[in-house]
Simulated assay, not measured.
Amino acid sequence: MKRLIGLALVAAASLAQAQNTAIPGAPASAAKKELVQRLLTLQQNQLDGITRDIVARPAQQIAAMADETLQTQIPPAKHPPIIKKIQEHLQKYEEGTMPLVRDRAAKISQASVGPFLEEKFTEDELRQLVNALEAPAFKKFQQAQPELLNLYVQAVRKDLATAVQPKIDALERDVRIAVGAPAPASGAATPAPAKPAKK
């Protein structure tokens, strides 16, 4: 009987410990925190890229607004110096913000993503993620992605050319008619710009 009671107490203690590890907000173990840091390090380049995009988007929107203003409200003869000044401002913005992004991105990920990973993933799950991301095969796959994507794009263009080109021709014809421009001759490709004569 004492042996049974002892086993029951051990089982109860083990169950309580397991439940405590699953309680939201419970402090993460040192091993778990280390795994989270490794995972953040592995993902830092991606997080940096996202942060750069967020910072760059307002500049892109402002540049688009400036371009529209140039095209619709300012005579072409006045464009060159204005474009140069806009480019200088954009470069100044980039030079002033990108170092800040590099300095802040890691701190932001530590403060926001780190606690999320600690809460949502078990230590074993984090270990599996880290092992997968550090696997040589996965790193090789990441390095091959640009080539894979380019191969796919070329294959799509080649495969869909015969199916899509007639629709492109029809769209060009309809738009030309809508704006009152002459339609190209049937079956004729859109003429390429004439090359300048050799001097």
Rank of each mutant, 00 (worst) to 15 (best):
residue 170 A to K: 03
residue 151 L to T: 14
residue 131 N to S: 11
residue 167 K to P: 01
residue 142 Q to W: 07
residue 167 K to D: 07
residue 192 A to M: 08
residue 123 E to D: 10
residue 82 I to R: 06
residue 7 L to D: 04
residue 70 L to E: 06
residue 92 K to Y: 05
residue 21 T to V: 04
residue 63 A to F: 03
residue 168 I to E: 00
residue 190 T to S: 03
residue 26 A to T: 15
residue 166 P to R: 09
residue 99 P to G: 13
residue 101 V to E: 09
residue 63 A to P: 01
residue 154 Q to L: 12
residue 161 A to T: 08
residue 115 P to H: 12
residue 121 F to C: 05
residue 106 A to S: 11
residue 161 A to M: 09
residue 178 A to Y: 05
residue 9 L to S: 04
residue 22 A to V: 09
residue 35 L to W: 00
residue 118 E to D: 07
residue 99 P to D: 11
residue 131 N to G: 04
residue 186 S to C: 03
residue 161 A to P: 00
residue 79 H to L: 07
residue 28 A to Q: 06
residue 108 I to R: 04
residue 48 D to G: 13
residue 55 V to M: 03
residue 64 A to R: 13
residue 98 M to A: 06
residue 110 Q to V: 13
residue 105 A to S: 15
residue 187 G to V: 02
residue 159 D to I: 03
residue 66 A to N: 05
residue 94 E to I: 00
residue 187 G to W: 04
residue 172 E to D: 14
residue 23 I to W: 04
residue 189 A to V: 01
residue 122 T to H: 11
residue 107 K to I: 12
residue 125 E to R: 14
residue 39 L to M: 10
residue 95 E to S: 00
residue 112 S to L: 15
residue 128 Q to L: 14
residue 161 A to E: 15
residue 63 A to E: 00
residue 96 G to H: 01
residue 77 A to I: 00
residue 142 Q to Y: 00
residue 38 R to A: 06
residue 187 G to S: 00
residue 196 P to E: 02
residue 49 G to H: 14
residue 151 L to P: 05
